[in-house]
Amino acid sequence: MMRVLSVLLFLVLAPLVGALLDGIDRIISARMQGRQGPPLLQPFYDLAKLFSKQMVAVNSVQMLLNLSYLFFLAVAGAMLFAGADILMCLFILSTADMFLVMAASSDSSPFATLGAGREMIQMMAYEPLTLLMAVGFYLATGSFHVGDIIQMPHSAVLAMPGFLVGFFFITAIKLRKSPFDLSTSHHAHQEMVKGITTEMSGPTLGIMTVAEYYEMILMLGIVALFFLDAHWWSWIIAIVACLVIFFLEILWDNVSARVKWEQMLGSCWGVTLLTGGLNALILMLIR
C-alpha cells in the first residue's frame, strides 16, 4: 500500500516539484549573476505555453520517441520510489536516455545529430559511476533493493562518502549543468544552437521538459537514498541534503565554463575511479 502511494505521489508530484525547483534555480542563478530573474512559477507558464502551441514537427517519429523517453524515465523513477532494485532502475534510466538520443538523431539534422553524439559521450561518462554506486550500496547495506537500503540502522553515506562526491560530479551531467552541458544547455548562447533539442518545438519540447523534471527528481531521490535510514529524522536530513546538493550544482553551474568532451570524459572517469573505485575497494576489504 505504501509503495503504491509512494509511486503515485512520485508520478503526480515529480513534474510539479521539478518545475518548482527549476523556478528556484532560475532565480538563484539570476541573483548570482546580478539579475532580478523570472518569477518563481515561470517554468509552469513556459510549459503551459509549449503545450498550447501548434504541433510543428520535422518527422513523424520524434514525438513517439520523446514520449517513450518520458515513459521510461517515469518507470525508472517509479522503480526507485517503489523500493525496487536500484541496479535495474539505473539500467532503465540509460534505456530511457537512449530513446532521447534516437529522437534527436531521427531527424538527420546537423545540430541535433551533433547534440545526440555528445549526449552519447555524456552517457558513457556517467555510466561507470552509476553502476559502481549500485555496487557500493550493495557492499554497504548487503542489498540492491531500495526498500532494504532505507531500513538500515545507519545511513549508507557513512560507509560510502566517496560515492556521494562522485555522484555529485555526474549529477551535473544529468541536470545539464555547466561545465558538462555539452549536448544542450539551459543558456541560449552556444555554438550548436540548442543541440539535442534543436528540432523539438511546442508539445514535443514540452514532453522533453517534463521528462527532464522526472529525471531531476530521480537524481535527487538517489541523493536522498544516501542519507535515509530507519530513523524518522533521517528524512529531514535527506531533504536538506538534496537541497544543499541542488544549490551546490547551481553554484558550480554559474562559476564554471563548459569543457570539451575529452575533459569531461577524462575527469568523470578519473573522479569515478578515485571516489567510487577507491570507496568500493575499501568496502570490499573491510567486508
Partner: peptide, 22 residues
C-alpha cells in the same frame, strides 16, 4: 565491467542512431 558497459553502450547506440535517422 562498469567501464566496459559504458563503452559497449556507446558503440551500439551510435550505430543504432545511424540506422534510424530519417
Amino acid at each position: 565491467l562498469a567501464y566496459g558497459s559504458a563503452t559497449t553502450m556507446l558503440y551500439w547506440t551510435k550505430w543504432l542512431c545511424k540506422l534510424v535517422s530519417l
